[in-house]
Simulated assay, not measured.
Amino acid sequence: MRKHVLLLMFLLTGFFTTSGYAQNSPEDVTMKSENLGGSVYMLTGMGGNIGVSAGDDGLLIIDDQYEPMAEKISAALDSILKDKLRYVINTHYHGDHTGSNAYMKEVKDATIFAHDNVRIRLLDKEEHKHSELPVVTYSQGVTFHFNGDTLKVMHLSNAHTDGDSVVMFEKANILHTGDLFFNGLFPYIDIDSGGSVKGYIAGVEKLISMINDDTKIIPGHGPLGNKAQLQEFVDMIKQTSAQVKQLKINGLPVEDVIDAGLDEKWKDWSWAFINEEKWIRTLYR
């Protein structure tokens, strides 16, 4: 039941992390807004979850989904607070987190922040707009003092990609993980873009050490989470990784490992984009 509910929810919201679009068209997707307390909100639609800070200083968002969602994101922000969008933080370079960058710069006149490697990878795209590129980049992190809170932006190396950032709202006790957390699902680890299973595990364990049982977690994808769910997530990665590693050490080719499959208890983590086979291939590689 849990598996089917999660799959239905994500398919209905157009949840995919590839550069293409989901089976739904953007026109059919509704942006949903949830107040997490005080000035912090979470927007869900088509692509990565968006974190929002809204208050006297204006608006700041974390990620901006796919390009066709830009006007819907703007309308959702207006429903929260009709004020200037001042800053956009990209947690990494994938199109479901940076697709509306150009709109936010050209139409909303926002300043885009990201890790150095996000700008490099966006520049490497065959077709890109200059306005979609981060204007301010950093190697380790940056701090925003905004709407009565302190937002710590921190780089975690070679995890989901080579340009990942997470954002901690210190006063609100809310963490936006970018794609270092797929709540209840096998994650996508972009090995070809500098990600690694080892780095991903280290990154998630770092996040766990920073938070407490009251911390609300905005995952890159999936419903709002908490520390216990983040711990369950990394435990799954470590245990499935150990299983696949041992089979590889024993000489089994990847196809045989796929045929053998993972422990039955992990079946519910499989979903439309990263099913069990794709997750095993990631771990084996």
Results as ranks from 00 to 15, higher is better:
Phe186Tyr: 15
Asp179Gly: 01
Leu175Val: 01
Phe144Thr: 06
Leu185Glu: 10
Lys152Arg: 15
Leu180Asp: 03
Asn173Leu: 07
Met154Tyr: 03
Asp149Glu: 09
Ser131Ala: 15
Phe169Met: 09
Asn183Leu: 03
Ile211Tyr: 06
Ala159Met: 06
Ser139Gln: 14
Val153Thr: 05
Tyr138His: 13
Asp162His: 00
Phe144His: 11
Gly184Ala: 12
Asp213Leu: 02
Thr137Met: 10
Asn158Arg: 10
Ala202Met: 09
Ser209Arg: 10
Val142Glu: 01
Asp190Ile: 05
Asp164Trp: 01
Asp214Glu: 15
Thr143Phe: 02
Asn212Gly: 15
Ser165Pro: 03
Tyr138Met: 11
Phe144Ala: 06
Pro187Arg: 12
Ile208Ser: 01
Gly199Leu: 07
Asp214Ser: 13
Phe181Tyr: 15
Gly148Asn: 04
Ile191Phe: 14
Gly163Leu: 00
Leu151Ile: 15
Val142Gly: 00
Leu175His: 00
Thr137Asn: 11
Thr143Arg: 09
Val167Ser: 00
Met210Tyr: 08
Ser131Gln: 11
Asn173Ser: 11
His155Ile: 03
Ser196Asn: 02
Lys206Met: 04
Glu132His: 05
Ile174Tyr: 05
Val135Asn: 03
Asn183Ala: 14
Val166Pro: 00
Lys152Val: 12
Tyr138Trp: 15
Lys206Trp: 05
Val153Phe: 00
Val136Ala: 01
Thr150Tyr: 03
Ile189Tyr: 07
Leu180Asn: 08
Pro187His: 12
Leu175Tyr: 04
His155Cys: 11
Gly194Glu: 09
Ile174Pro: 05
Leu185Gly: 01
His160Cys: 12
Phe169Asp: 05
Leu207Tyr: 00
Asn212Val: 03
Ala159Trp: 00
Asp162Val: 00
Glu170Arg: 09
Phe144Gln: 06
Met168Phe: 15
Asp162Gln: 01
Lys152Ala: 13
Phe181Gln: 09
Asp190Asn: 13
Ile191Lys: 15
Val142Ile: 14
Glu205Tyr: 07
Leu156Asp: 06
Leu185Phe: 13
Ser193Asn: 15
Val167Gln: 00
Glu205Cys: 04
Ser193Arg: 10
Gly195His: 08
Gly163Asn: 07
Asp179Val: 00
Leu207Trp: 00
Ser209Met: 06
Leu207Gln: 02
Val135Ile: 08
Thr161Lys: 00
Thr177His: 06
Phe186Met: 10
Lys206Phe: 10
Tyr200Trp: 04
Leu185Ile: 14
Gly148Pro: 02
Ala159Ile: 07
Asp149Lys: 02
Asp190Ala: 14
Asn212Arg: 08
Thr161Cys: 08
Leu156Gln: 07
Gly141His: 07
His176Trp: 08
Ser165Asp: 08
Leu156Phe: 12
Met154Ala: 08
Phe144Trp: 11
Pro134His: 10
Gly199Arg: 04
Ser209Pro: 02
Ala172Tyr: 01
Leu133Asn: 05
Val204Thr: 05
Gly141Thr: 08
Phe181Ile: 12
His155Ser: 15
Leu175Ala: 02
Ala172Asp: 11
Gly199His: 04
Ser193Asp: 15
Phe182Gly: 05
Ala172Gln: 14
Phe186Ala: 05
His176Val: 12
Gln140Asn: 13
Ser139Arg: 14
Ile208Gly: 01
Glu132Gln: 14
Gly148Thr: 03
Glu205Thr: 02
Ile211Cys: 06
Lys171Cys: 02
Leu207Ala: 01
Ser165Glu: 04
Asp192Trp: 10
Asp179Ser: 12
Leu180Trp: 05
Lys171Asn: 13
His160Gln: 10
Leu133Tyr: 10
Phe181Ala: 10
Val167Phe: 01
His155Gly: 07
Ile174Asp: 04
Lys206Cys: 02
